[in-house]
Design a protein around this nucleic acid. Sequence first.
DNA 1: CATGAATGAGCATTCATTCAT
DNA 2: TATGAATGAATGCTCATTCAT
Lengths: 190, 190, 190, 190
Amino acid sequence: MSGHQERPLRADAARNRAKLLDAATEVFTTRGVGVPTEEIARAAGVGVGTLFRHFPTKEALLEAVMVRRLETIAAGVARVAAESDPADALFACFRLIAEQSVGKTALTQALAAAGVDVHTSLRTPSAAIHTLLADLLHRAQQAGTARPDLTHPELIALLIGANAALEQLAPDPTARQRVLEVLLTGLRPR
Amino acid sequence: MSGHQERPLRADAARNRAKLLDAATEVFTTRGVGVPTEEIARAAGVGVGTLFRHFPTKEALLEAVMVRRLETIAAGVARVAAESDPADALFACFRLIAEQSVGKTALTQALAAAGVDVHTSLRTPSAAIHTLLADLLHRAQQAGTARPDLTHPELIALLIGANAALEQLAPDPTARQRVLEVLLTGLRPR
Amino acid sequence: MSGHQERPLRADAARNRAKLLDAATEVFTTRGVGVPTEEIARAAGVGVGTLFRHFPTKEALLEAVMVRRLETIAAGVARVAAESDPADALFACFRLIAEQSVGKTALTQALAAAGVDVHTSLRTPSAAIHTLLADLLHRAQQAGTARPDLTHPELIALLIGANAALEQLAPDPTARQRVLEVLLTGLRPR
Amino acid sequence: MSGHQERPLRADAARNRAKLLDAATEVFTTRGVGVPTEEIARAAGVGVGTLFRHFPTKEALLEAVMVRRLETIAAGVARVAAESDPADALFACFRLIAEQSVGKTALTQALAAAGVDVHTSLRTPSAAIHTLLADLLHRAQQAGTARPDLTHPELIALLIGANAALEQLAPDPTARQRVLEVLLTGLRPR
DNA sequence: CATGAATGAGCATTCATTCAT
DNA sequence: TATGAATGAATGCTCATTCAT
């Protein structure tokens, strides 16, 4: 499915790759994309060389972080979509995605990227999310629980907006909750 | 209130300052905050030296750009607030602020900054906006046109979210319009 | 004549540019092309930043060094060609060029580059040399002082060979002299 | 004479050593000495670790390549020297050595190194060549076929020069031939 | 012994800021 | 005072060499 011939990676190499992804997620998330690669390597407990062996470019590392996030989201959405009442699934998923905002900048960027241009590696997971959401939107509209005029790109934009909004309220669950309610209310038919 | 003794600038100095602010706004907005100071100076038609005479730091320049944006917004909000029916003014202002999203990254950051931490120089204009909005929210809630449980920080978060959402839809006015409707609907009482 | 709009460079900037070229010539020549740019900057008494302001790339610096060398050679050849008896000018010039071998690696590379591919900036000076030499060869052949079957590319190759040979004998003038004699003898008709 | 106790290598180890030498010769020759060791290992079909087991240093590998080249040349020279008429053997050998220039940089360096300084391991094979050539030169001078004033170091320098010259004309046999004639003519007494 | 992952010093290059002109 | 050249710390990335598997 991927273009590369991915040989199954030695145990320790896989461990390091994972450590790097975790560290990068953490660091990019809390301190922005500007942090030196060396810091990320240190945070992962490996040398820079190792980082660059696994990810040929800083950008490639960021991309990998985003891919993983998107895949996690896609999986969550798929699960929730399967388990929920079609009429409500859209709302549950919206909640789910929006709440992922813990990872501030990086994820927002990831989602934004999922919108348009996008590097090749992000295509697959973001397409998966898009397909699922398009389907959920359609069903909710059929069930009369979502505004019938809302389009898919608008839904995505609103998700990104929700994300941005929730980031602002990170430490206050009540506030986050209310903001989500506002948004979900807005999605309903008038 | 400000720490500096601000003597009136010589005419050409003032002109340079303005050219720099305009150029910086344009450049930060279209190409992000990462652009070299030299590019901004070039865009303004002056040397780097001049840039640093007016703004001791790149950060100070960014700050000045944001201050000006916030002041523009504050003025707009004040005007709309004065002219509108108290019951609807909140919604008109929400629209107004959210639509400023044309300047992508920089403004979003500016608004985000207006939310919490914030450098000293941003305090004043953002406080102005906050005061106005708090008042408008209160009035709308009195008039029964806004959810009574919505708090001020939540409103701000939603504005930032709206901004982020609209950025995604920059070239499509219909979509932008509908997304705004969704958000405004959500602000109304159930 | 050059593609760039070359504005006349401030006095100190010109001085630094010259210092850099001199230092680079010296350092590349004595220690090879592998030396860190920082060493060259230090040898020139400037910061790395200055080096990169004048030459956008290490390669560009090397190129500039070679251009200057080729121009010096071209000038010398032109002078000697003008002053000498047509029948002997070729030999005088051959001597002149071959003796430039003091600058080991770099010059050899420069001459080699003058042979084929070559970056654009080297084209002009090396073309000048080629034109002059082609002419001198032709005249010497007319005068019967050079092998009639020798072609221009062969002459160039022999020059490069002479250079390489003389480099080996750097400290021994007698030996250098004799090697040159061998080569010049070889150039004569049998 | 050598410092190491050279125990006979196991069959596969010997095979690997040979593969490495071949690959290194090829790669150094075609792409310069700058290529990463890993590329050489890959070209040889082994891991880097193996490379470094056989040659403790990149430099050691280069040295080994050069030794082998020199030994090949020495053998060729010895054979030609034995088979030829003493009066002409020098010229035949000159041709032979100069023509080895196919391997550009590396061999030139090897020969250059054979000239002076030289790492210990190169001493033996280059001494062999030197002895043979000194002898051939002497005989040719006795036979009156070489300039009587030519010294051994000069001969070596000319060989290196010949090499450099022929490299320039790699694809053109006629030109190579003529350049060699020029050089050999120069070696003759006037 | 072979492998290839890990290491980290080293290098080219950028860019905010200072300062001579 | 404006200019743009100079500065040098900081950064992404490479590659010879080591070492766990």
